[in-house]
Amino acid sequence: MVLTSLQEVYNWGRKNSVWPLQFGLACCAIEMIASTMARYDMARFGSEVFRPSPRQADLMIVSGTVTKKMVPQIVRLYNQMPEPKYVIAMGACAISGGPFKQGYNVLKGIDRFIPVDVHIPGCPPRPEALIHGLMTLQKKIGLQSLTGDDRPRHARADEPSEFPIPGHGEHDLIPPRNPGIWQAPVSPRLKPAG
């Protein structure tokens, strides 16, 4: 006889049916498509059902360069996804701007506007890396508790599930980052001026 808790059954079911949003931004999207194809076959991990509508998706794979023109749409899509929802930042561009960081129209990391659960480095990451990122997310889901102080964001009534959508200003996004989610870290190598 197998004894198990409700929480484990709940998490086991959730983590093996993570449905991503069918949503590609740039080069990484091609590797994302390749990882769903016969050779890499993401279906083995329960994530082959790419949903075209955010209302049916659990996971947003931010696959590629996020431009400032595209940020409001991405945040809006994130807001439209039902809880519990997760975000994978796939590739260097989604993490930090990557090779295009010096660009005037490139957001320097999607974690300035929405919370990111798993970062996958690479330019673009190989399909194996995406699958590893997905498995890391599954591990994370499996460890989430439903009660207690360490319960995740979606189980807390006071935590937001939607984030403000930035606007387009005359020179830049307004505001350029969401201070409620992301604050500029200061490098230990740098000594503050003054």
Partner: peptide, 23 residues
């Protein structure tokens, strides 16, 4: 257009000739 405008030309004008090859 413009949702993937990532400033390839501007970046290339600030780096060396060979530096643009990966871009």
């Amino acid at each position: 257009f413009g949702y993937l405008h990532r400033n390839h030309e501007k970046i290339a004008e600030n780096i060396s000739y060979l530096g643009s090859m990966p871009y």
